[in-house]
Design a protein around this nucleic acid. Structure first.
Length: 312
DNA sequence: AAGAAGAACAACCGCAAGGTA
DNA sequence: GTACCTTGCGGTTGTTCTTCT
């Protein structure tokens, strides 16, 4: 992958990470924390360069990573943030809980960049990934995980390999890192995936969110909800005190109006109850304080709002 | 069913900024 | 002041996957 060797050290592994390597890295970081990347591989017993370990952790192994489709709301936010910030992916990613700069960059390059360049194709970028010969949009990803990702569930013999395919499952299943203190709620069938994490089927009745722009509900399951909501709030807290006014003004309205297109709220009562019952150590999530991308993007569109907020 | 083309994305690289001795 | 180290960022590329013919 990529170019020629960077660390150029003989004997170092390159390319795709194996499940074993992921496990070793995760466990090492759990024990010792992040940082000291240069020495980490040696100490952890990995034949990788520190940079590679860092990237792997930040982009895929971190417990708060949200995998899966970029929702239309997120997409809109990305577009607006990009308008303000340009290619400052890390800043943009900082405003999208659970998303990484790499993921957003990739998404931009493969979807939004084209969309912006070709305004005629306005509409949800989720719908213009492919076009058939009639010019009709065909969503490559509007399939269930079972259909689309055999190597996540039942790898074909020829593909059996220890190498981890971490393709963001666009997804009826969501990767969740094991969190000892977080109960695995639900009714989900769960199975260990090839990264040592857990894959969950969506709860029955949630299939409607899997329509290619699926994650209209930005949160695919409890763990996702926890991570996403808390990250978002934490992000606010950390970055701008003035965001309190933002939250007070615009966000509280959203639990109702950010119901998904089927009229369902993003959070079920059960979910909110779980959050308030200590799903989080620090963050108490109020029922009406739910992420509203529409509100945020409106804010960013405002005369003074966005730009100042984004400046660190 | 097979091959081609294009899309998606994981991973790499080089560089710059910040921290420390 | 500066040299070195570490970390983070944005751009780029190779591989895999999906869809079309």
């Amino acid at each position: 992958m990529g170019r020629s060797a960077c660390c150029a050290k003989e004997g170092l592994n390159r390319g795709a990470w194996t499940a074993h390597e992921d496990k070793v890295l995760s466990e090492y970081i759990k024990l010792h924390g992040e940082g000291r990347w240069r020495n980490l591989p040696k100490k952890a017993g990995l034949k990788r360069c520190g940079k590679s370990c860092r990237l792997r952790w930040l982009n895929y192994l971190r417990p708060d990573i949200k995998r899966g489709n970029i929702s239309p709301d997120e997409e809109e936010l990305i577009i607006r943030l990009h308008k303000l910030l340009g290619n400052r992916w890390s800043l943009i990613a900082g405003r999208l809980p659970g998303r990484t700069d790499n993921e957003i960059k990739n998404y931009w390059n493969t979807n939004l960049g084209k969309k912006i360049q070709d305004p005629q194709q306005q509409g949800s970028a989720s719908n213009l990934k492919h076009h058939n010969k009639n010019g009709e949009p065909v969503s490559k990803k509007a399939k269930t995980m079972e259909d689309m990702s055999p190597n996540m569930t039942s790898p074909s013999p020829s593909k059996v390999s220890p190498v981890v395919r971490t393709k963001a499952a666009k997804c009826t299943k969501v990767f969740i890192s094991p969190h000892p203190h977080k109960p695995l709620l639900g009714h989900q069938h769960c199975e260990e995936n090839n990264r040592g994490g857990l894959m969950f089927d969506r709860p029955a009745g949630d299939e409607h969110t899997n329509n290619g722009s699926s994650s209209l509900s930005p949160f695919s399951n409890i763990a996702d909800q926890e991570n996403s909501s808390s990250d978002f709030l934490v992000d606010f807290d950390m970055n701008e005190i003035s965001l309190a006014s933002l939250l007070n003004s615009d966000f509280p309205a959203i639990n109702c109006d950010n119901a998904d297109q089927n009229g369902d709220n993003i959070f079920s009562e059960e979910m909110l109850q779980h959050l308030n019952d200590g799903g989080h150590d620090c963050v108490q999530v109020q029922p009406n304080l739910v992420l509203n991308f529409h509100s945020l993007t409106s804010f960013l569109d405002g005369d003074q709002g966005g730009e100042e907020w984004l400046r660190e």
